[in-house]
Write a protein that binds this DNA or RNA. Structure first.
Length: 494
RNA sequence: GGUCGCGUGGCCGAGUGGCUAGGCAGAGGUCUGCAAAACCUUGUACGGCGGUUCGAAUCCGCCCGUGACCUCCA
């Protein structure tokens, strides 16, 4: 019996705003599509949230024994800067500013993103498709939508006919919006002459002569619209109907609403069965934004090089901090909160190490390991309740420490099971890693220097027994000490 | 203005109609040459006002505060 048959996983489905029992379309296979980054800048805190959230989902589903295909795209074309002006592509704009080929920008920031995700121990997805690599698929889908009567060509661009679509389907079923309200609330937009209605959105956009990211199409040279890539690529790799679609809450409207409309218009299927949305990140209670001056990249966080940061925070601290909040809640970053998370993580990892030192006895200790197991899974089954799972881990940590200090005991069976569960929960599911301090190398240097300084003092006192012992023990670790007239040098032997 | 969400002890953050969440910080103690760690003990918590109920922080209404989306955004 697979684990997924024993565990009833409930996930919050944005489609009806309720927690629903997760049942895959074709078990044991699970298909997930998550909206990835638009690669035009360094990865920041906002990128980490969905990445960690859906990494947790991915890890848990795999742990339960599902065979998961996890598709997370890279958007390297198609996000318009603004609908009101020239509609300049973000990546194109960045390329202009930095005098680069657009694909250079894309490659550079894709690499940066991957580095940051690896540091956060976010597993790479099964497939990471790029929008620019799926122009044909997007054109085909746009054409299908035209043929089905839900899109029209206008002056070299193709627009989705939202009003027409809404006659037979409900545009707004995901975000809870009502088309009439949107129409009455419509703002005066530029280029509206091309669109039949203000709410229509582009499937294909004509490229102005200055636009260097362009592809040939039957409608002329242009580039794909904002939302089409995800519909086209999810269909290609997961099929017309798949299990879970994820992304940030900010994408709920219009992005995901448009995806549903496109999929229905093209194939008749509304694509995903479960829609999951992670909530946003705030900094000191404020939305993170470039204009607010509180925009923190992951590298700045890891190195502490931002004026708002009192110190650096390791990738694992960031990951742990995010997991201590439920993915559906906003999470506020502050030095105080991060510092608390860091200490908590150290405590947890300390208990993990303490586990190795415990000596089992014949008597069973007070901790109910079976209940710990049940409660851990129960927490995860309840819409990925990582904060509750972590709370249970802290309870276990307390028991481990109490036992180590001689105030409780543990049987061999308990110990074995606890070790196994700690491994499963901490490493497999939460995806935490041993605390790898980025300063470890620096620390080693300082430590050896300190030890050799002390050895110098010892030598002055002619305690050669101790000084020789320091040298030979260091040598046993591969550190070769070379005495100089007035000091020392040392090196690490390969 | 419209839509949706949130408001929990010094800080972060779960939860839920009646039973200790947890972490960090604080206080007292044990241990200790000192310190740290660990362990033990400790906190009038649930925005305000009404209502439903035997009982609400948990359900309903109103108000206040706050945030997200409505334009690109993770």
């Amino acid at each position: 019996m697979s684990k997924y048959q024993e565990n009833r996983l409930f996930i919050h489905n944005t489609l009806n705003r309720k927690k629903e029992l997760f049942t895959p379309l074709t078990p044991p296979h699970v298909g997930i599509y998550v909206c990835g980054p638009t690669v035009y800048g360094d990865p920041h805190l906002g990128h980490a949230r969905p990445a960690v959230t859906f990494d947790l989902l991915y890890r848990y589903l795999k742990h339960l024994g599902y065979k998961v295909r996890y598709v997370r795209n890279i958007t390297d074309v198609g996000h318009l800067e603004s609908d009101a002006d020239e509609g300049e592509d973000k990546i194109l704009k960045k390329a202009r500013l930095e005098q680069l080929e657009p694909m250079e920008v894309v490659q550079h920031y894709s690499n940066r993103y991957h580095e940051a995700m690896a540091a956060l121990n976010v597993l790479p997805p099964s497939i990471e498709p790029r929008a620019s690599g799926h122009i044909i698929e997007q054109q085909v889908m746009a054409q299908q939508i035209i043929e089905n009567g839900y899109a029209y060509e206008s002056n070299g661009s193709v627009y989705f006919d939202v009003l027409k679509y809404n006659e037979q389907h409900r545009y707004g079923k995901l975000s809870g919006r009502v088309l009439e309200d949107m129409l009455s609330d419509a703002r005066q937009l530029g280029r509206q002459d091309e669109k039949r209605n203000s709410v229509d959105f582009a499937l294909w956009k004509r490229a102005e002569p200055s636009h260097i990211m362009r592809w040939a199409s039957k409608w002329g040279e242009g580039f794909p619209g904002w939302h089409l890539e995800c519909s086209a690529m999810s269909k290609k790799y997961l099929g017309e109907k798949f299990d879970i679609h994820g992304g940030g809450m900010d994408l709920l409207f219009p992005h995901h609403e448009c995806e549903i409309a496109q999929s229905v218009a093209a194939t008749g299927s509304d694509a995903a069965r479960y829609w999951m949305h992670n909530n946003m990140v705030t900094i000191n209670g404020q939305k993170m934004g470039k204009s607010l001056g509180n925009f923190i990249t992951l590298e700045e966080l890891f190195t502490g090089s931002h004026s708002l940061l009192e110190k650096s925070y390791s990738p694992m601290t960031i990951r742990f901090f995010m997991l201590q909040a439920h993915y559906g809640s906003t999470i506020d970053f502050s030095n105080e909160a991060l510092g608390a998370a860091e200490k908590g993580l150290i405590r947890l990892m300390g208990a993990l190490k303490a586990l190795e030192k415990l000596e089992p006895e014949d008597t069973t200790g007070s901790f109910d390991v079976d209940a710990f197991e049940r409660n851990g899974y129960k927490a995860m089954n309840d819409d990925l309740g990582s904060p509750v799972l972590i709370a249970h881990l802290f309870d276990a940590a307390k028991y481990i420490n109490t036992t180590l200090s001689g105030n409780d005991m543990i049987s061999a069976a308990q110990l074995e099971k606890l070790k196994s569960l700690f491994g499963v929960f901490i490493f497999d599911i939460l995806g935490l890693q041993e605390f790898e301090d980025k300063d470890t190398a620096d620390l080693t240097e300082k430590l050896v220097d300190l030890l050799l300084d002390i050895r110098l003092e010892v030598k002055k006192k002619k305690d050669f027994e101790l000084s020789d012992r320091i040298r030979s023990e260091l040598a046993s670790f591969g550190i070769i000490v070379k005495d100089k007239k007035d000091g020392f040098e040392w090196e690490l032997k390969k």
